[in-house]
Amino acid sequence: MAVYIIRRILIMIPVLLGATVLAFVLVDVSNDPVQQKVFELQSSTGDEVPQSTIDAIESELYYDRSMPERYWLWLTGIGDTHGDIGLLQGEFGPSIDGPAVDISSDVGERFWVTLRLVIFASLASIGIAILTGVVSAVKQYSKVDYSLTFIGFLALAMPTFWFAVLMKEAAVQVNKGMGSNLFRTYGSGTTGFQGTGWEVFVDSLPFLIVPTIVLMLTGYASMARYQRAAMLEVMNSDYVRLARAKGVRNRTVMRRHALRTALIPVATFAPLSLTFAMGGSIVIEQIFGWRGLGAYSLEAILAGDTFAVMAYVLISGVVVLVGILISDLLYGVLDPRIRYE
């Protein structure tokens, strides 16, 4: 098992490296932070920016190097640097906002905010996908099945941002109507709240409800289809028919024989729902005013902050890969036919 995990992780490293190369090229080509910064300086002072300042900015942001060299420095930090770059040395590179801003501490702080949302939303959507998928399969071609299928299609067609705005406004209306503060629709926690990890978590719960519901409902539908198909396949298999023929009660057949096997494909859901929730968090955080990674990436993109965008790409990539790893391991736990040599 341990050997298997290590091997899986080793396979993932080139994929992650490839992803950073590709993302770096795309972001680097489409961004010019030097020009952006020069433009900012120019509009704030009103004067022409002298060439020496431009050179200083270029060297500060490593834009006096070629792109491959910049990538190398970003990744390893080996070479002629100012000591603020090099992923392997724990540095994410200089931010466009100057040396006062440290990307790694920013990202570290915001990571937990986003992770909270992503994990809750993933678990919720997997749960509801299993539930609706199984019910749909058991009551195949009934009214329940058709309506669940229709709701699923509707959820699949629903743009996350539109639904998020709708739910946010609805929560505001409910709050107004009940004169309470049940749902919090702005921010990820009470401003300036201090306390232990658990207290912070409890404090953040009212802020979590609406965003989690939104991500859950826009993300569960395709998984529910998988679950339905898996359950149907199992229900039509010989051993389930045999169990019925032996006279086992219907409930027992469903629970003991069918559902157990039909839950195996759930393992494929995990990375799917994680990537979906990661993508959705960008939109959700923007709408609900969370200061998480998603909002961070958007700010970085708008500011043309290459290294900050790369930090987001890296973290999001790691989250997805961890999801894939977990799903591989889950397969082994759930399906006794799979052996790890």
Binding site: V15, T275, I282
Partner: peptide, 18 residues
């Protein structure tokens, strides 16, 4: 695989923003 790992929305946004 690599494209699956890259956060689609962020990269698309970065290119579009440029």
């Amino acid at each position: 695989d690599i494209l699956f790992v890259i956060p689609f929305l962020a990269i698309a946004a970065a290119i579009a923003g440029a």
